[in-house]
Computed example of a mutant assay.
Amino acid sequence: EHPVLTMTESEQLWLLECYQLIRKRLNRPTPGRYMREATVSLVRAFYFEICNLLDVRVPQSNSKTQSRAYAIFDQFIKLVSQHFKHERSVEWYSSEMCLTPKHLSEVVKLVSGKTAGQWINTLVIIEIKSLLMNTPLSIKEIAMEMNFPNQSFLGKYFKNTEGISPSDFRKGMPG
């Protein structure tokens, strides 16, 4: 309903500063022991800054249908955030939420513009990239952590989405 929102110049500069801070953190030559946790915290703070901007600009709808759709989406995102390392099927999430997979995907697409499967895939890929960039774990260890049957499955999953193998992605990182 609100595809374009206008920000003031100061809001734009603030978000740009937040974004640049995340980029600086990711480009540090020596990651450090708590690199991942610090980066996740910065990304969360950035997300909440955007939510605050949206909250001020987007009128709250009184529609029960829309409220229900947003409630389903919120529940879905919370579940995915907790379980994406081990569960990648829309069917599993829809079952947990007592919905059909089709209904879940339709509601998620209506609210966010992406299907449930796309959201799951996005979170999985972001986590794999984070592990490749910020940990010394081997690709085999990452496959185990992300609940892939083996390194080959992880490689195919990653390459299908990113167009590059996990090892090539890791080699191509700045540093």
Rank of each mutant, 00 (worst) to 15 (best):
W14H: 10
C18F: 08
C18N: 14
C18M: 13
Q20T: 03
Q20L: 09
Q20G: 08
I22S: 00
I22V: 07
I22M: 00
R23H: 13
R25S: 09
L26Q: 13
P29E: 01
P31Y: 08
G32F: 01
R33D: 08
R33W: 04
Y34Q: 14
Y34H: 13
M35K: 15
A38E: 00
T39V: 12
T39K: 12
V40T: 13
S41F: 13
L42H: 04
R44Y: 06
A45S: 10
F46Q: 12
Y47F: 13
F48K: 09
F48V: 04
C51D: 03
L53P: 12
L53D: 12
L53H: 12
D55T: 02
V56N: 10
R57S: 09
R57F: 08
P59R: 14
P59G: 14
Q60L: 02
Q60K: 09
S61R: 15
N62V: 01
T65V: 01
S67R: 15
R68Q: 03
A69N: 14
A69L: 11
A69P: 02
Y70S: 06
Y70V: 06
Y70W: 13
A71H: 10
D74R: 08
Q75K: 03
I77T: 11
I77P: 03
I77G: 07
K78H: 06
L79I: 15
L79H: 09
V80K: 05
S81K: 14
Q82A: 04
H83E: 03
H83A: 10
H83V: 08
H86G: 00
E87W: 01
E91L: 03
E91Q: 11
S94R: 06
S95A: 08
S95L: 03
C98R: 14
L99R: 15
T100P: 07
P101Q: 14
P101L: 06
K102D: 00
K102G: 01
H103V: 07
V107A: 14
S112N: 02
S112H: 08
T115N: 11
A116Q: 07
A116E: 07
W119R: 07
I120M: 00
N121C: 12
V124P: 12
I125Q: 01
I125G: 04
I126M: 07
I126V: 10
E127Y: 03
K129A: 06
S130N: 03
L131W: 12
M133R: 15
T135V: 09
P136Q: 13
L137K: 15
S138L: 04
I139Y: 10
E141I: 07
